[in-house]
Design a protein around this nucleic acid. Structure first.
Ligand SMILES: [Mn+2]
Ligand SMILES: [Mn+2]
Ligand SMILES: [Zn+2]
Ligand SMILES: [Zn+2]
Lengths: 146, 146
DNA sequence: AGCTTGTTCAAGAATAATTCCAATTTTCAT
DNA sequence: ATGAAAATTGGAATTATTCTTGAACAAGCT
């Protein structure tokens, strides 16, 4: 009588690629990735979990963590940390930093001015190999009426 | 017969100031602070706990966390985060970033080249107020023989 | 010195983000 | 279809950090 396991097998959307950056795509990975592309507000794993339930009601939080980790490790998205808060996730693969606006609580991507290389403005021993850079800013964006 | 509670009251070292940056000094806070000044390798709270036991055998990990938090909040030291690892602590109050050398696992302070202001090289809306900056690099320092 | 009051400390419990685990389900290649 | 490999799930475990509570302490006052 109870409709048990009736939605266990889910059909793949027609626009789902077989893989992204060498990572085999699954329905869950695809929906997580798609959500990040469409809602670029740097959600946490739990945010993603709650949002993606619309499309995958049976997905588990562990799977969301698994998907995010797989996407990060294959370079399809980036993991962003603010202090000790929950990690956030960002699909912008350009080199960029993050500005946390205290007033609104929102997080914004920040790029370098054209031509600037961070390594050029830092005091580093010649020959230093930089593999990863993280820039985080906190402050207040200007208000519209000022 | 057992020397019980004999070291309960600890005398303050003669070089301990009454306060630092407006924070009332205590024996525990002083020893934690002094250790950070003397061993500038960006230790974790647990590192500090283990090291400071030499001088304060009865200190608790909770107290180390309390001392570090008090020192951070009064601007006497800085809290540094790498990804999701344990926080580390740094007594260098100059504006600087951190370079994590993958080869040795060590962490090094990195300053800007003279005259460079980070805000100058970033694309930010005019009027943006920056209150806090965090720069983290990962990579490999050049080897001596190369 | 004794009393009062606010602060700090220690020990252990609680919290919360994340990771791990074992069992099932799905996918992929034969 | 069959078997192997990989992914998903729900729940337990982990771990850095925070919280709680009572004892110890420091400072100010009489
Ligand atoms: Mn959120
Ligand atoms: Mn350590
Ligand atoms: Zn971003
Ligand atoms: Zn530092």
């Amino acid at each position: 009588m109870v409709n048990q396991a009736s939605e266990s097998t889910q059909e793949s959307p027609s626009d789902m690629p077989a893989e992204i950056s060498g990572l085999r795509m699954t329905r869950q990975r695809w929906e997580v990735y798609r959500l990040l592309l469409e809602q670029r507000d740097h959600p946490t794993a739990n945010d993603v979990f709650m949002r993606v339930k619309d499309r995958l009601p049976n997905i588990s939080l562990a799977t969301v963590y698994n998907c995010l980790e797989a996407l990060v490790q294959h370079g399809a998205i980036r993991q962003v940390n603010f202090e000790r808060e929950s990690s956030r996730f960002c699909p912008n693969l350009e080199e960029h930093g993050h500005f946390h606006d205290k007033r609104s609580g929102t997080i914004h991507d920040v790029t370098f001015k054209p031509g600037v290389q961070l390594a050029d403005v830092l005091e580093l021993p010649p020959g230093t190999l930089i593999t990863d850079i993280e820039i985080t800013l906190r402050g207040e964006l200007p208000t519209a009426h000022s």
